[in-house]
Design a protein around this nucleic acid. Structure first.
Lengths: 215, 215
DNA sequence: CGATCGATTGATTCCAATCAACGTGAGTGG
DNA sequence: CCACTCACGTTGATTGGAATCAATCGATCG
């Protein structure tokens, strides 16, 4: 990870961006697309919050197989793990600004509200991981892709949903190959469940059909 | 879940069983093999700790496909989820005694140590879920089974390792079928990596071979 | 002794991976 | 402006690993 001491200017509190308890704490850091925020097996000294952009956490096997743990969007915490070391690395999906908070700061801040917020975020993370387990272990390729689109749509609650990641990232999140992801996307389109306006934007045409594939 | 008020006698503190902060808190409850401790979608009002026996958390899809989230052994917490409702149900793997603690008790106990212990347990749980994601998403059937045996062995650190669950439970944890689990077990035995003394007990013959399959 | 349940083994099928070709759009430079 | 490259995505043909279907084995129990 980059040297934190190198940046000192970005601590300013931006009013209105967040209503929360992290205001004024930690450092803001910018990362270019695909830049590493922290690495697998690095000591988990900080916790992180997305300010703008998006983040993926990834884990590699020795032979290059890759699993994406989750994607994080503005306002969400990541890097929440018990002391020790990180099991996943984190990378910027696109140009991204992140708030970096030292763990010891949280302890010493004495804010039990903040501690509670972080516990909530950890438990929330666990819930998402559990949904992900079911998806990876027991869903078919088509159900995986449908569930993924459905989740994105739910989080964004917009008519046209943006896909912030490429096909390889989707594949590595879903435990599939890019080819299979691509095939399932065209299959869902032929079934009139979704429609892509371009490679990175879609709308859900038939919410019932999608919902039924997500269970 | 069963009525908590039905049991009042089992609160006694057993010295020496745990060195921890939960002593004297909550109720002890017994569950028979396969009995449900809480159900999917039940409100998450309590947290739980295994005293003796073992527990599995499971989630079902509408058509009966099942995913096991994790197995829990004595001393471990489970049912740690952000308020809302449980995403998985919990069942006793065998005859089991569980300590049940009301969430509100923890808040009001004011013990920040206990709160910290629970946060630790939640984060620990998350770490395990993340390992599980990699296993489900990117490992082969053989690697899955090997990793599973390896983890069990690591947790028990005994020469002869006990499998507290049947093949169906292993399969539903690993995202496989019982037949495939069985085939991989014989394959590992033929490769002299492990040896089964009976269906529920094995020893690791070649730790290097196993470790290399677990990454 | 049959009955039953869990585990193993065998034969076959099928879904997703792999290997390969092609399409498309953005950026580059002549 | 066009030709070229390059990254990314889609589509097609074939393979392969795990699922499915089916039979058998072994242990426990009435």
């Amino acid at each position: 990870m980059r040297d934190l001491t190198a940046q000192t200017s970005a601590q300013a509190y931006v009013p209105g961006v967040f209503d929360d308890l992290t205001a004024g704490l930690g450092l803001r850091m910018s990362f270019a697309q695909n830049e590493e925020i922290y690495s697998q097996e690095e000591e988990a000294e900080f916790i992180y919050k997305v300010i703008s952009g998006a983040v993926r956490t990834t884990r590699l096997l020795a032979d290059g197989r890759r699993q994406i743990g989750d994607f994080y969007y503005p306002g969400e915490f990541f890097g929440l793990e018990p002391k020790e070391e990180h099991r996943f690395s984190a990378e910027a999906l696109c140009d991204t600004v992140v708030l970096v908070i030292k763990r010891s700061t949280i302890q010493s801040s004495g804010s039990s509200e903040l501690q509670h917020e972080i516990w909530q975020a950890t438990a929330q993370e666990l819930t998402r991981a559990q949904d992900h387990l079911l998806l990876l272990g027991r869903k078919t390729a088509c159900e995986k892709v449908a569930s993924f689109l459905c989740n994105l749509a739910r989080r964004q609650s917009a008519e046209i949903v943006a896909l912030p990641m490429g096909r390889q990232d989707m594949a590595d999140f879903l435990g599939l190959t890019i080819e299979t992801v691509s095939r399932m996307l065209t299959q869902l389109q032929k079934g009139r469940s979704v429609r892509f306006v371009d490679h990175r934007h879609f709308r859900i045409e038939n919410p019932d059909a999608i919902a039924c594939m997500c269970e």
